[in-house]
Amino acid sequence: MKIPPYLRPGDTIAIVCPAGYMNPERAVTCIETLKAWGYRVRIGRTLGGPSDNYFSGTDEERLADLQEVLDDPGVSAVLCGRGGYGLTRIIDRIDFSKFVKAPKWIAGFSDITILHTHIWSNYKIVTLHSPMAGAFNDGDADDVYVQSLRKALAGAEAKYACGPHPFNRVGVGTGRLVGGNLSLIAHLAGTVSDIRTKGKILFLEDVGEYRYNIDRMLHQLKRSGKLDRLEGLVIGGFTDSKDTTRPFGATVEEIILDVVREYDYPVCFGFPVSHDRENYALKIGVEHTLGISPEKVTLEE
C-alpha cells in the first residue's frame, strides 16, 4: 500500500472534470478557498471549456487533461470538479505508470468511484473519497465536511463519529476502507476495475435510484461474493431514492438489512457520506476501525 505524500502549504492542487460538464462559475468558491488554505490551484482545460454537451470535453480531451495532471510532478493532488458520467469511457486508456511511481492524491466521489476502485484494486494506492468543487458553494466551505477534505489532504487522521440509527447492527470491525457509489461498484463487476471486499470495511452511497434497483445491485454484490466476508458495512446517504408506482414494500434500510442478515459484521446507517452536504473525506485503502454501539458510530483510522 502506498499513501501519497500529504500536502504542504504552497503545493499545487489541480482541478479537472473527467466526467460531466461543470459550469466554471460553480468552481470559483472552491478555487478561492483552496488558495486561502495556502495551496496553489491549477485549473484543467476540462473545467468549463467549449463543450456543449453532457461531457466536460471529448473522451480525448478529458483523458489528456487527467493524464497531464497525473503525470505532472508539480501537481500534488487532483480534485475532481464534479462527477456525472464519463470515467468508464476513458479509464482503460489512462496510463498510470508515472502516477504509480510518484503517487498523488486523487479526490472526488460519485462517478470518481471508478478511479478510486480501479486504482486501489490495481495499484494499492490510497485515494480520497471526498466532496468536490461544488460542495464549497452556498457558504459550505467552512462546514465540517469540506474541512474534512482539507484535514485529510494535510495528513490528519480520520476520526469521524455520527449518531445511532435504529437499524444499526452493533459491533466492531477493523479493515481497509473501500467503497463509494453503489451503482458504479455494481457497474464495475467483471471488469479490471472490480472491487475486492474480503476483510474490508465497505461503504456505499447512491443518489436517485429506484428501491428495486438498489435491491438488485445489492443482490449482485452478494451473488458475486462481495458481501460475505466484510469486516463492516457503512451505509451513507441514499439520497432521493425513488419508488415505483407499485410500492417496493421495503425501505432502503430494510432492503440492506435483509441482504446481509446471514452475516454478523457490524452495519451502520446514515453515515455522513452522500450526495448531500453530509460527506466526510474517506481515505480508500487505509485501515479503519468501525465501532457501532447503541449510542454512537465511530470510524477512525
Binding site: A186, H187, A189, T191, D194, M217, H219, Q220, R223, S224
Partner: peptide
Amino acid sequence: IETLAGTPSD
C-alpha cells in the same frame, strides 16, 4: 445482463 456480472448467472 449488467447486474449478473460477477455472479454465477453471468
